[in-house]
């Protein structure tokens, strides 16, 4: 009876957005009289950071400080249609809609600034700090606040915009499965090292080394949140979770958190992450969506590492101590 160290490797990719397209998202952007913008969405922030990432996308596109943008989500009276927050679609689909809307609003703001400065709008640029100035002549400048105010109160222009992003829905060939799937994919490779105790069947000392390619980290801390939390869920799926532990029999189903088990704060893996950014040609600033694919690689990586450690193939999830012990027993008996 001993503890055995094992290493498992995986590589995966993940489609961004509803697989066949046909999932539009829309955004409405408008400025108050002082050049502060509201982004109205019907999209959902369920913790992944929808409000925060679209806020940064809007601020970047408008050319204003992030504090001048507030994102309002999820009122069906004020937000235009969005398919929803699933299928890793939020950043990509909603982000693109926000860019389209923000560009329209920015054009109105720059047109007003151009009239104020008596130049052509194409000669203007924003500094991201709340100023619009003539390219190459920063002293000839007007604040975004004054430009937005002038647009509304002097020129009668609405500093607003609307945007939609849609990949039209693909058909599926019934014979061959030919289809237009999504336009971009995120990628991950992962190496998991862990210890298997062949007496108890327990897995411990899990160390994860991962490399995720996610287009662009629009906010690196939000990205980290997804990757760390997602890998935790992946480990939980791999070794702990099931609503039907005797599947396909329905016996022993859990009804509470003491029988539906997940790793607690004392059961965490050491996770060291590298982020690669190959921008998606049609992603907002190249961004893809990391929210789902971060969980997927951990499941097979753990199973592969268990094989490497003790030589048993666990092809049924979750990889519980019981499954490992039964497989070891069979291995010894064979």
């Amino acid at each position: 009876m001993a503890k055995h160290r094992g290493r498992g490797t995986v590589a995966v990719n993940y489609p961004i957005g509803m697989n066949l397209g046909g999932d539009p998202s829309q955004a409405l952007v408008h400025s108050n009289p002082e050049g502060q913008f509201t982004v109205a969405l019907s999209s959902i922030d369920l913790g992944q950071g929808m409000k925060s990432v679209t806020r940064q996308i809007a601020a970047e596109t408008l050319g204003v400080p992030v504090g001048h943008v507030y994102v309002d989500t999820a009122d069906s009276d004020t937000g235009a249609q969005c398919m929803g927050s699933f299928a890793s679609r939020g950043t990509h689909r909603v982000g693109n809609a926000v860019i389209a809307a923000a560009k329209e609003a920015r054009a109105v703001m720059l047109a007003a600034a151009a009239r104020e400065l008596e130049v052509n709008p194409t000669d203007l640029e924003t500094d991201g700090l709340g100023n619009i100035h003539v390219k190459g002549a920063p002293q000839r400048s007007v604040t975004t606040k004054d430009a937005a105010n002038a647009a509304q109160f002097k020129y009668g222009e609405s500093v607003s915009g609307s945007g939609i992003f849609l990949i039209p829905m693909s058909d599926v060939d019934v014979e061959t499965g030919e289809m237009n799937t999504v336009s971009c994919f995120a990628h991950c490779a992962m190496i998991v090292d862990l210890t298997v105790d062949d007496k108890t069947g327990e897995i411990s000392d899990v160390q994860i080394n991962s490399a995720y390619e996610i287009g662009r980290a629009l906010n690196p801390k939000l990205m980290e949140q997804q990757l760390v939390g997602g890998a935790w869920m992946g480990l939980s799926h791999a070794a702990y979770e099931t609503t039907e532990p005797a599947y396909p029999s329905r016996d022993h189903r859990p009804f509470d958190f003491s029988s539906y088990v997940m790793p607690g704060p004392g059961d965490l893996a050491q996770h060291d992450i590298a982020i690669l950014e190959r921008p998606a040609p049609d992603g907002p600033f190249g961004g893809k969506g990391p929210g789902e694919m971060c969980a997927n690689p951990v499941l097979p990586a753990v199973a592969n590492a268990v094989f490497d450690a003790v030589g048993v193939e666990i092809d049924t999830l979750p990889i519980t101590p019981e499954r490992i012990l039964r497989a070891l027993k069979e291995q010894r008996g064979a």
Binding site: V228, W232, F257, M262, H271
Partner: peptide
């Protein structure tokens, strides 16, 4: 319990 962050 936290289902999102992985506690770290």
């Amino acid at each position: 319990l936290c289902r999102c962050t992985g506690y770290e």
